[in-house]
Design a protein around this nucleic acid. Structure first.
Length: 271
DNA sequence: CTATGGACCTGAATGC
DNA sequence: TGCATTCAGGTCCATA
């Protein structure tokens, strides 16, 4: 489900309910990609403070530790003021609080819920190597240009890897490259500084607009309160193979890079 | 160190 | 209708 905009929309819709709630307990279903790593009773009595985000991870600070949540490929979070409806078979985790229940649904089980105690959460193995936040100051063309230096991997796969900048998933990578006019197979290290400027701006623009739209492009996305995103902000190229490019009218093309689909316009996007 | 391919899972959509 | 195949929003790991 989620790329950065969907995670951010989820976080924003969740924070008012979750922040300030006191944990009563937790429930863990079948294994996730990464499971809690502690006894669920350990969380009882703690009060949730800030609910933040790093890349595609949601971080709920509980003072004595931080609950790290990742939605994987198919996960979604929902908040229920009590009583919560019965659990479907895909519910993997629940955080029970004095205000209601936070529920993680995740059919494919690529998601993660991890309890972290002690040192700086930013140093957690899941977070330590993440690239820059695209919507915060310090992310710009200069950063991309420096980080891309010497890289021969395609710019699409490089963006997706998240080492330079986080949060750009498979949909928004295609969208950002279209907006920047860059061919997805271009070697990252061959991008000029000027094109890196355009790319940084496109990444910020695409992600920012998707957040504004309430978690845009995903047909079935809805936030933690069950609000659906505005699907009218449809993708310019993603999923549109064979359909006309919105700029030039020539057919959008689909290729496969690193076993993932990439969509682009061969005439608007150049190497 | 970099780049690549497979692995992890299940459900929905497509094709014969 | 039924069955097989392909594809899906993300990482993590082994290998070369």
């Amino acid at each position: 489900m989620p790329e950065l905009p969907e995670v951010e929309v989820t976080r924003r819709s969740l924070a008012p309910a979750l922040s300030g709630a006191t944990i009563r307990g937790a429930w863990q279903g079948k294994s996730l990609r990464v499971a809690l790593g502690c006894d669920t009773t350990r969380l009882a009595g703690l009060q949730i403070g800030a609910v933040e985000r790093r890349g595609k991870y949601i971080l709920a600070d509980a003072g004595a530790g931080v609950l790290i949540i990742h939605l994987g490929m198919s996960g979604s979070l929902q908040w229920f003021a009590d009583p919560a409806p019965p659990r479907s078979a895909w519910v993997r985790f629940e955080l029970l609080t004095d205000r209601g229940v936070l529920r993680l649904d995740d059919p494919r089980r690529f998601g993660a819920v991890v309890w972290h105690e002690g040192a700086d959460v930013a140093q957690h193995p899941l977070l330590r190597r993440l690239g820059r936040e695209p919507l915060e100051p310090g992310f710009d063309g200069a950063l991309l240009h420096a980080a891309a230096r010497g890289r021969r991997v395609s710019v699409k796969q490089w963006l997706l890897a998240g080492h330079a900048v986080v949060g750009v998933g498979n949909i928004y990578a295609s969208e950002a490259l279209f907006e920047a006019g860059i061919h997805p197979a271009t070697a990252a290290g061959r991008l000029s500084r000027a094109r890196c400027d355009r790319l940084a701006q496109a990444v910020r623009g695409v992600l920012g607009r998707a957040i504004e739209a309430g978690g845009s492009t995903l047909r079935d996305f809805s936030d933690a309160q069950g609000q659906a995103g505005h699907f009218q902000h449809a993708a310019a190229v993603y999923g549109r193979a064979g359909e006309p490019c919105m700029h030039c009218g020539r057919p959008v093309r689909r290729i496969v890079q690193g076993q993932r689909s990439t969509f682009y316009c061969p005439s608007c996007q150049r190497r």
